[in-house]
Simulated scan of single mutants.
Amino acid sequence: MAGHSKWKNIQRRKNAQDAKRGKIFMKHAKDIYIAAKQGGGDPDMNPGLRLAVDKAKSDNMPNDNIDRAIKKATGDLDGANFEELTYEGYGPGGTAVMVEVLTDNKNRTASELRHAFSKNGGNLGENGCVAFMFDRKGYIVIDQDKTDADEDTMMLEVIEAGAEEMETTEGAYEIYTDPEDYQDVKGALEESGFTLETAEITMIPQTLSAVDESAGNKMIKLVNMLEDMEDVQEVHHNMDAEDEIMAQL
């Protein structure tokens, strides 16, 4: 039993690491796609794309994944026409889930998503069924250990940069912006010398939905299954659970 328990612990850590790496790659793929869509697929002529590619490579994203993201954006991938879509549904315990996808086959993607939801105690819903529970925001995180600024100083910097709100959590300053102001706020904070641990435009839940351990574990399986799908770019949800469960997400 001791050996079995040890193997399970190792496997659990490996699965969490794989899921984290997959999520990082998906984020880079989305950044690369958007940059190439807006400014073209040549990094030498598109500074935004060059920056996105450099960041992806710094996280050891394979070149094939990078090339695929660029080709999706420029329409050079087997002549496919890709669309950005958002699907909505309910996860285990009544949690709200939003899934951003990039697909060349809506029927295939919808079928795969429906299967993932139903297999893990949820169901795919209609457009608009949970979108009203989320706000689209710029989201920036600064590690308190990586700055000399105290809370008052940080608040002044954030206000000057044009952000909407700042929350001080354990070990971090969490900053929220209007999506249209995100780039300006991000640039102002970087120019002031702050290291940004996280910087993205994302969906922030207005309220959290508490679930028990059983529903929380099913939710982990659902999120992992969704993130493993090639078409899925981002998964948002409003689950609240015990710290041990949330850490796995």
Rank of each mutant, 00 (worst) to 15 (best):
I245A: 10
E84V: 14
P179F: 07
M155N: 03
E151A: 10
G89S: 08
I220G: 01
S209W: 07
S192N: 02
T202N: 05
G171M: 07
A110Q: 05
D148L: 08
I220W: 09
L208C: 07
S111F: 05
E126W: 08
F132N: 09
I220V: 13
I159W: 05
Y90S: 01
N123A: 04
A215N: 03
T198R: 07
I142R: 05
V232E: 07
K55W: 08
C129N: 07
N46A: 15
N9M: 14
R136F: 00
V99Y: 10
P43A: 12
T147Q: 08
D240S: 15
N105G: 11
M1C: 13
V223G: 06
M203K: 03
Q38A: 15
V211I: 11
A56D: 07
V97M: 01
E83A: 15
G75R: 01
D18M: 14
F132Q: 06
E157C: 01
E191M: 01
D31A: 13
D240C: 01
L49V: 10
A163T: 05
G187V: 01
K146M: 11
E180A: 13
M246K: 14
Q11M: 15
L226Y: 02
E164Y: 05
V101I: 14
A80S: 15
K218D: 08
E197H: 07
H28T: 01
M45L: 15
D148M: 06
A2D: 13
K106W: 07
T95Q: 09
T109Y: 03
R114M: 03
K30Y: 11
L222A: 04
Y173K: 09
E167V: 11
E174H: 02
T169F: 00
T169W: 03
L196G: 05
D42P: 09
E165M: 04
M45Y: 12
E190M: 10
G39D: 13
S5E: 14
L222Y: 00
R114H: 03
A2H: 14
N65H: 14
M61L: 15
V97E: 05
T195F: 04
P92V: 05
H28C: 11
